[in-house]
Design a protein around this nucleic acid. Structure first.
Lengths: 188, 188, 188, 188
DNA sequence: TATGAATGAGGATTCATTCAT
DNA sequence: AATGAATGAATCCTCATTCAT
């Protein structure tokens, strides 16, 4: 019964992701969003109650997706696990940029947004924990320099995937190159 | 001679820089700016014709400053020059974040903003050229791995100073640590 | 310095009072308000942050005014005090209708509105207390029927001034007529 | 033949009455109404063409109901007739409050609402006529004070049933108490 | 008949900018 | 030069109503 939907919720979130990445949280408007979707602006409110909920849902979906993939990685060997994890992050390389806007979301108006944000923060912390665990183990096993403080190793690793992919290499190849440089360094 | 000015232009730009970094270009309002300065909101228009010009002038000043320091570096030995340059960038580590907002500035309303933006882009390109030159020479001199494509070396170097300084180390020390890891890698 | 104001805050509240009485809280719009004032709609926001604050301030002013007058009444003789108090209420006969909308004001968005509302409720309670005290004393002194429960006496008195003034009698005369009927009844 | 109706028209009007009383005409929404009924919001349009018609029909039903009961009262003795009439009004004590919103209904869009409103006004006038007739006769018969102008007697009587029933007495008892006070007054 | 989806009109609010003192 | 007041454009959001299944 009822009419056919003009677009699916997931399409809405896809477009939102693209626009928030291009324009930032404050530069993202529902007018803009509706211009990139069929139908009228007010139709968007059939899906989400307000701007905050849209962006929160979008971020939640992105980070959930990463979390799922990353949780499936076999951690037996920490170094190859790190390589695999890096590939996943490289594929979703804008994750950090997106999450950087998370704290701008005003959750006073919306329960749902508040819940999504709490979830996002939880998962974000979990991801850091996993990385710290893997890097710590690799260090223990003598694969990584012991004199470098763990937070620094984690920080440089986490920052790695922001590197602009100037060669436009495919994700896997690019991630291997980055990992290789992270481990081996640029020096001769 | 009229009244004394309420504040210097440089104060205005200092506050602007801080606020744009904290809130992003679209999250930055003149109301906000005036609340962090003495005097009324409308007084700001005695200094700059519009919001765009303020932010453009702010960015111009920051990048000019970096450019000046970086131009003064002795390039005789490329590796130590790179280390010195990195220190300068680390001191102004938010440079990239700030410049990331540059493309949001609408230059249709303002000649001055357009001119500033052109300048910013020019200097930005010059900085990359300098870095590419230094890294290229270091590679030639056998200090950096020859099989790594130059753009990748430049990219990872340029991305280096976005690494969050989790230890809150002083700039010089932090820059040395980052350089050491960039050259030597994290691996044992 | 600065321009001359188009209207005073008190004018704004006067118009608001009239409009809220005619159209009810939900029927009252800022568009409507601005159409009854000089200047643009957005100018209203120079005076109050939002609709809620306007209506709360309006109600606060009305009830404060009544409270002030009523507090000045000499309570030595409860019956003549009641007559005086009634005259004051009759002059501001729409008080109850106005306060009836007070509970519709959403105070989540506004500190100021919440404060004003709390004040309104406090004063409202004080007014009831005063009335109860006067009527109680009159009852004690044998001026009012002892077998009628005090709340009923208070209720009928408080309801008295909602009676439509069909004769358009002047306030004092009308209030005396109502008081006479309240005390003596309609019966022969 | 066809589906069974989700709910009866009278249920719809019952809920409408309750909601209009609680929230006022402008605070009453079809969304709200549908949330207190089974089925979807759009289903309401199977019963009534628009919001105006719903509220008009609701008010018409309420006032018709009162009119019917009040018409059945034996008017032989005006005083006991008045007492009986008062009981009926007390049972439907929110009548005035409801009718107070009648003038807010915009009848430009709807014939039916216009017709209902005309009916309401007619009956409202009839009710006043009946009351005036009864009170006039009681006055003639020497049961009510002759020096009090008839409109004042009618006005105070009509206003009587707005008195808040603070004791939560049953309707009959409450109405007797009010009548007693209206006739005999509060005084000793 | 029932309904989920779509929509446009309308009101709230913010903010850059201009005006007038 | 400084500023308080005024404003219009732009965004957010809600709601009555219509559409299409």
């Amino acid at each position: 019964m009822g009419r056919k939907q003009l677009y699916a919720e997931s399409e809405l979130l896809d477009v939102t992701k693209r626009l928030v990445l291009n324009h930032g949280y404050d530069g993202f408007h529902l007018k803009m969003l509706s211009q990139h979707l069929p139908g009228a602006r007010s139709t968007i409110y059939q899906y989400y109650a307000n701007k905050e909920e849209i962006v929160a849902a979008c971020m939640k979906r992105v980070i959930s997706n990463v979390y799922e993939k990353v949780s499936a990685v076999d951690e037996t060997d920490p170094m190859s696990a790190l390589q695999e994890v890096l590939t996943i992050y490289v594929e979703e390389s804008k994750l950090h940029q997106l999450l950087g806007d998370a704290n701008k979301i005003n959750t006073n108006n919306s329960e749902a947004a508040a819940r999504d944000l709490a979830f996002i923060e939880k998962v974000h912390a979990d991801l850091k924990v996993q990385l710290t665990r893997l890097i710590g183990r690799a260090q223990q096993e003598g694969k990584l320099r012991k004199e470098v403080p763990l937070p620094v190793l984690v920080g440089t690793f986490f920052n790695l995937f922001n590197t602009p992919n100037m060669l436009n290499a495919p994700a896997l190849q690019w991630s291997q190159m980055l990992f290789d440089m992270w481990v081996g360094g640029s020096g001769q």
